[in-house]
Amino acid sequence: METLFSPVILFFVLGALAAFARSDLVFPEALSKALSIYLMCAIGLKGGVLVAGNGATVDLLLAAAAGLTLSMTIPLIGFFLLRGVGRLDPVNAAAVAAHYGSVSVVTFIAGDQLLSDAGLPPAGYMVAVLALMETPAIIVGLFLARRFGGADMATAGGSLWRETLLNGSVVLLVGSFVIGMIIGKPGFEPLTPVFETGFTGLLCLFLLDMGLLAARRLRNTRSLTVRLVAFAIIFPLLNGTLGVMIGGLLGLDVGTSTALGILGASASYIAVPAAMRLALPKADAGLYLTMSLAITFPFNITVGIPVYTAIAKWSV
């Protein structure tokens, strides 16, 4: 319950309420972009510095293998659920499934913050797992679209692979993680006023904007059905539970298992939408963006993260 009263969540709720109430509150686009760059750098550096302190461990390799397996399996399960229960055509089902196999950096950052506040900080290497889980689902989604929907991605060519592998969020996360590993704790010390002390406040601002974005998208959507809304809530719950359980079986601690659950449960709305728009233009962008950004993201932030934490505390 105390998670819901964390300032990070309260600012998110404030943004959503402002959008639902049709307030004229607007975040300058450039500030939103700058905040997202800051947050990715901060979380990458933090992870890298922690790994520099502990070294590469067996846990890191196990978590990475689990993350990769999740990000390749979730789209497959999601695709057939979306075809059967969601009644989507193959191309839309593949595009939506790819979003659920990939991850939401902001959900992870919020989860990391909430877990750290609760005295359950996830291992630093989970940032590397986060970066690893960004792209495999895109490849699985495109395979599904071609195999079952006859989609032709040939015209996407090199720009698709550049978009997928050198996506800005992946470059920033991996780059700042490596910088964190190189500089270690002593090198990070002078950077703490920017990347540590100011972190929670800036995360609050960013989540205020995300609340506005998510609620405005939900208000303006025309493509959702009750079945798809149910999918966008129940599927992440299943994936989150699966992630936590796998973490527990691998012997990861409560915070790290919860982080793996959060990664499994979260759906991308940064890297995958751009790649899908490019590779599968026939898929409805309004559908996959609304499901991941306007339903799954708020659900995970307000309900999912506390649920995955409770499952981890109970089972790990």
Binding site: A30, K33, L213, N220, R222, Y269, L289
Partner: peptide, 15 residues
């Protein structure tokens, strides 16, 4: 036809 849209750089420009 697809409803209202806004420029959203945070979503990778997809919207």
């Amino acid at each position: 036809g697809q409803g209202r849209w806004r420029a959203e750089e945070v979503t990778g420009g997809a919207g």
